[in-house]
Amino acid sequence: MNAVTGARRGARRKRSAVALARSWLRAHGAAAVSALRQLRRQPVNTTSTVTVIALALALPFVGYIALGNLGSIVGDWDRAATLSVFVGGDPGPDALARLADDMQLIPGVGGADIVRKDAALAELAADESFGNVLPLLDENPLPDLIVVRTDAAVLTDSQELEAIRARIASRPEVSAVVMDTAWIGRLVALMAIVERVLVLLTVGIGVGVAVVVGNTIRLNIAMREDEIVISKLFGATNGYVRRPFLYAGLWQGLAGGLLAAMFVVVACILVKPGVSALASTYGSAFELAFPSPAQWLGAVVIGGALGLAGAALSVSSHLRHQDRLP
């Protein structure tokens, strides 16, 4: 008997849970659609808000795309610094090999490759632009060279890099040390700064977007004051009143994010030929990377979240003032 009533009660609870879920879905569906209708009824307002959101979001977005592209250029150097160590005099192959072995023992050094002056001259002779000039020389003007590669982690650590350079330069055989990749270290450090600035910019713009959405929602609320008051007189909960405005914020934010991604793609298309031309002057086949699907999604999600946040702030502050009805 108890089991039977228990089962009945369970079934009733289940049914009411289904009914609740259905009415929840219905309420949200209706609010989502009514928000869309409301936005469509004011095409000028909606379009300008979405455009402002899109332009604001496109700014940091372009920054991240540029940073990502720079990062991929820097990444090509497999993140190790190289030092060109020029050896004076004519030490001979054995002494040169010993010197290279010694350098490999320095902490932070990953490898040392010898480039004999004969080999360097032969390579130069093969180059058309120098080939004609070289026979004019009496003797090989090039020094022997050891190319020292550091461990990857040393690239951006200028102190350790300097320590390695000093140890190499202290050898009497060494006539000069040139840090080939010092600019990468500087670039990486610069990018770290730019990235921080971008984060700050993104936060600032995010707040701005939320405020813009909040403002348009406030206007919408003012325009629908009567409807809110009447709905509340007939038993509308605050949730019911809030919902369409939250959806309006969400839709505008999502649309703004999507449009921002489109703006960025257009910017990439416009800039791409110039970047390719610049890269080719460095002998690079670098191609500008467009926003990835994840970045598209990110822009839309961030836009939506900011729209929702702006609407939520505006609606909740309004409803607090609205608890007393006229």
């Binding site: 259905r22 009415s23 219905r26 309420a27 209706a30 009567d226 409807e227 009447i230 709905s231 007189l233 007939f234 038993g235 509308a236 909960t237 019911y240």
Partner: peptide, 24 residues
């Protein structure tokens, strides 16, 4: 009256039911 001028008669009358979450 306090009716919503931009909603049909049907929608105006439906308001208390919509607000309470009844099925269409």
């Amino acid at each position: 009256h306090r009716l919503l001028p931009d909603r049909t008669v049907f929608d105006n009358v439906a308001l208390p039911l919509v607000v309470a979450g009844h099925s269409p």
